[in-house]
């Protein structure tokens, strides 16, 4: 694989990852959110596999497999199950409406470019073009968490953010050391599970997953 093609593929994958994240902003149902997240994870897995193939790095293959199992298969499935249990809640009345959300996503992407500019400047890696996009998906994930009402969509947003970070790690450094990677996976998994448990608890206690109702603790 030549460097040019590799670069193009990686940038394309990064763009797809970002687009999958942004897709959440215009979709209106939780299953669609989950689907978009699964797709985003899948693009990352693809990117990691491409990278692994190019670098002939077994560790990366392992990471890709883990990621596939976790983020493409397990987590979306778990999310769907939770969503079935707690109900759709027709949540998806976001704080910020769709056009504005998309505009903000655009601005965030620009900000990500501006912020990542020294990183891109320093890097000699062929993957450097994707790094601002990865950062942008971190921002978009953050934006989803901040603007969506349902606890489940917040989880999705958080996972989108995680994906962005994972992509950033892959693009910037061809993967952090394995032990760290494993620890991160474990943490993300546990964190996801804990959040899932709390979604049930919120549902039980408040009869909704609208976290906007969680406002009794203040001042």
């Amino acid at each position: 694989m030549s460097v040019e093609i590799f670069t193009t593929v990686m940038t394309l994958a990064s763009s797809l990852v970002l687009l999958a994240g942004i897709a959440i902003l215009w979709r209106r149902s939780l299953p669609a959110y989950i689907h978009a997240f699964a797709r985003q994870s899948f693009f990352i897995v693809v990117a990691v596999l491409v990278l692994a193939a190019r670098e002939r790095d077994r560790e990366l293959v392992l990471v890709a497999l883990l990621m596939f199992a976790l983020k493409v298969v397990f987590m979306p499935a778990a999310l769907r199950r939770v969503q079935r249990h707690v109900g759709a809640d027709a949540d998806v009345r976001p704080y910020v409406n769709t056009p504005v959300s998309l505009a903000i996503a655009g601005i965030l992407t620009l900000v990500a470019y501006a912020v990542a500019q020294p990183v891109v400047a320093l890097s000699h890696l062929p993957t450097r073009g994707g790094m601002p996009l990865a950062l942008a998906s971190v921002f978009v994930g953050l934006f989803i968490v901040a603007s969506r009402r349902s606890a489940l969509s917040q989880i999705v947003g958080f996972l989108v953010m995680e994906n962005g970070i994972a992509l950033l790690a892959v693009l910037a450094t061809y993967g952090v050391p394995l032990i760290v990677e494993l620890g991160v996976f474990l943490d993300v998994l546990l964190g996801f599970l804990v959040m899932q448990v709390f979604v049930y608890r919120i549902r039980d206690a408040f009869e909704t997953t609208d976290v906007d109702r969680l406002r009794s603790l203040r001042h």
């Binding site: 953050l142 968490v145 917040q154 976290v211 906007d212 969680l214 406002r215 203040r218 001042h219």
Partner: peptide, 16 residues
């Protein structure tokens, strides 16, 4: 009191 309004969205917006 305005800062600590209880809205988790707002809180995340602060982080952001």
């Amino acid at each position: 009191r305005l800062i600590q309004s209880g809205s988790v969205h707002l809180y995340i917006a602060y982080v952001f």
